[in-house]
Design a protein around this nucleic acid. Structure first.
Lengths: 248, 248
DNA sequence: CGTCCCGTTGATCCCTATCAAATGTAGTGG
DNA sequence: CCACTACATTTGATAGGGATCAACGGGACG
């Protein structure tokens, strides 16, 4: 045994659910653990997809950069999830960049092992398919939202999703578990950091959320759900609207 | 043999690529063919996912309806593609409605057979994963476009994608192979039929495309590519912008 | 040949991007 | 420990890309 990774570490991962212990031992023996500091990249967009990974601890951000330098946050990876499985879908290169937003620990395998895992264990194949299927559903939800909803709804839904996937109960409300900026939220919802900032400020005034540098805590979840579902907010849009001066 | 489906019909489908003939015979014996008229639905959003399908001939539209009745076109299914594989991703119900936009022929299997195919043949599992992976990539592209590009680029790209996936060379240019309305294009690009109509009209004036009822033919592919990549169009946006009357 | 359905086009409005600038906050090195 | 710096956030002002509202025109199909 080259590493001292306990079997229990992978046993509870979705990707390895219901995979027999003897196969898990093989899996473990091939795993390469990796420690990351905030800002470290696991892989870069366009780079050959030489490995696939599971996140054990921390949080990662997956970002696509467009031709003209704009960025889109594809998703956040939370502990227990697989990522970087480009090769499994027959892509030679990673389609996005993946970086740590806080100290994190990942487990990596050479992409060549993917096929071995697939062929060696049917449960593994089914688990992988389900994981990708779930992501496809999520992507379609996002497309629907970007196509039909207004910014406020989208941002509300985005934050709800964040606390749902990775929220932490505090005495003030439910907090997003990892550092996230207005810019990040904007890149997830197809808007600008300015608009996100204005929305959060308005919500803060109404006591809906508590905000801080790279921090969001939701106090009134129900009210936020109402906004996500299209209720009209109390945000005063008329502030900017000026009544034109009557020409006599 | 209950049906007279020739083996060659499924042999060339991506989903069954490299699957041995003996397995194909099993697959065929369980297949249920179905003929569809324009407007017929294969399945409805929310309905239990009792079957999965392959399109043999024609074209289908996959549509999601939002809570408030708006529609989003998820994708068009072209001959040879799998669809309705909700159950493979462990979803109990279809997440969208699927309907024929022209006369079509599909092949259906009971969802329960999916697992049998998966376990019976590893190549099948890999093919399925690749198909879903490709769709995930497509979905991410769309998210990126909806987030960062303007309407004209998105519509241009949408039409390019249509002729790429299902274009037919004519002596006037490359035609979209199936009936499609301005409304459909709008629902694919997150805009309104009005805006799509205006864009197509402008492009028609410039000789970029030829349009008709439910028809689009691209004459100058290169120019359209240029638009999709963000070149400024010749569309006169100032038409609507009125110079306010000088008050003396 | 009338009736849908699809497409076109004008006019107006407003949500939100953009431009601009100030304030606040964590981290760092002297 | 504080000044310095880099990065995050806030907030105001303005403008414009498209949605929306409204009406008409035209082709297909029964």
């Amino acid at each position: 045994m080259t590493h001292s990774i306990p079997r229990s570490v992978v046993k509870n991962l979705d990707l390895f659910r219901a995979v027999p212990d003897k196969d898990l031992d093989t899996v473990l023996s091939l795993a390469r653990p990796m420690r990351l500091n905030t800002g470290d990249t696991v892989f870069q967009q366009g780079e050959p997809a030489s490995q696939f990974f599971v996140l054990l601890h921390g949080h990662l951000k997956v970002v696509q950069t467009t031709a003209d330098g704009e960025q889109v946050v594809v998703r956040y990876v939370i502990p227990g999830e697989v990522f970087g499985i480009a090769k499994a879908m027959q892509r030679p290169a990673y389609p996005a960049t993946c970086l740590a937003v806080e100290e994190s620990v990942v487990l990596g395998w050479p992409s060549s092992e993917w096929d071995r895992f697939m062929t060696g264990n049917l449960q593994f194949a089914a688990n992988a398919l389900q994981a990708v299927g779930q992501r496809l559903q999520d992507a379609h939800s996002r497309i629907k939202e970007l196509s039909t909803e207004e910014v406020e709804q989208r941002v509300a839904r985005c934050i709800l999703r964040l606390i749902d996937a990775s929220g932490e109960k505090t005495d003030e409300g439910i907090a997003v578990n990892f550092p996230i900026t207005r810019q990040d939220i904007a890149e997830m919802t197809g808007t600008t950091l300015h608009t996100v900032s204005r929305l959060l400020s308005a919500w803060k005034d109404q006591g809906l959320v508590i905000t801080g540098r790279k921090r969001v805590i939701v106090c009134k979840v129900d009210d936020l759900i109402r906004l996500a579902e299209g209720a009209v907010s109390g945000v005063d849009r008329s502030a900017a609207r000026k009544k034109p001066v009557e020409p006599f």
